[in-house]
């Protein structure tokens, strides 16, 4: 962990070498994200609700997914751009160091510009929670905490799974976007607005539903079933195949010529 934090410090230091680019990066990220939020707000100018979801419920859902995605993009960029490590042969270097490989991959790169997205997501999240007038009790606090943690976990797992895929081939990584960006785009809205097949996919194949559907039912008072409080924990099971496949990939690794 110390290594991760120290690397982060170094990364920050090297970012400061390019001050202007860093600041314009931050600003442009903020602008991009605002357009997303504006689209939702504009949508609700025309319609009162989408399949029973109000403006702030949708925004809440949106913020939850953005939060998890942006945190992962910021702090786990090493696995997001893992193919670069393989292509440039830098992965060899990691194998030469007496530390856990995954930890080293995580320490290899960051994307601090995306932190602006995290902050925005938090702001929207708080506004939505206030506007929705949710009466917080201990259960609801646990629910929202687990939701946020599981949102990070699910993206971390997907990123890691896609990183493992790089061990097989570094080409054709478009499939990666299908799961990360594509999945994110869909999951930003409450999953029940889609048809049944989607709900099946997002419950059993990629468990987005355990991040922003089942627990939200409880949080928003659409259901009183307490089992939904702990439902985000299901997402953690998803970590297991991701980590295992990554380990398997390391074993299969064949390096590149020099």
């Amino acid at each position: 962990m110390k290594i991760y934090l120290n690397s982060l410090k170094l990364y920050f230091k090297s970012q400061l070498e390019y001050k202007k680019s860093f600041i314009t990066g931050l600003l442009s990220q903020i602008l991009i994200m605002f357009t997303y939020y504006f689209i939702i707000i504009a949508l609700f100018d025309k319609f009162d609700n989408i399949k029973g979801y109000t403006k702030y419920e949708v925004l809440l859902c949106f913020a939850i997914i953005q939060f998890g995605f942006s945190i992962t993009e910021t702090f786990a960029r090493g696995i997001d751009v893992f193919e670069n490590l393989i292509i440039r042969g830098e992965f060899d270097r990691l194998l030469l160091r007496p530390k856990n490989i995954l930890l080293q991959v995580l320490s290899s790169d960051y994307d601090l510009i995306k932190i602006s997205r995290v902050i925005q997501a938090i702001i929207i999240l708080i506004i939505s929670l206030i506007k929705l007038n949710i009466k917080f009790n201990i259960y609801k606090i646990i629910t929202i905490s687990l939701i946020l943690i599981s949102s990070i976990t699910i993206f971390f797992s997907i990123f890691l799974l896609m990183a493992s895929y790089c061990f097989i081939t570094v080409q054709g990584l478009e499939v990666k976007n299908l799961f990360t960006d594509g999945g994110k785009q869909i999951a930003q809205y409450p999953i029940s607005i889609y048809n049944k097949h989607f709900i099946f996919i997002f419950t059993f194949l990629i468990p987005y539903a355990f991040v922003n559907y089942y627990p939200l039912l409880y949080l928003l008072g659409k259901s009183n079933n307490k089992i939904y409080v702990l439902s985000p924990l299901i997402v953690f099971i998803y970590l297991i195949p991701s980590i295992l496949s990554f380990k398997w990939g390391i074993k299969k690794y064949t390096s590149v010529g020099s």
Binding site: I3, L10, K13, S14, G89, R93, S258
Partner: peptide, 19 residues
């Protein structure tokens, strides 16, 4: 590796040493 670097590119080498 003569052809590959293990030093952080944008910062002084001494920082890599510390890491």
């Amino acid at each position: 590796f003569g052809q590959r670097s293990q030093l952080w590119w944008d910062i002084p080498a001494i920082d890599t040493f510390d890491l």
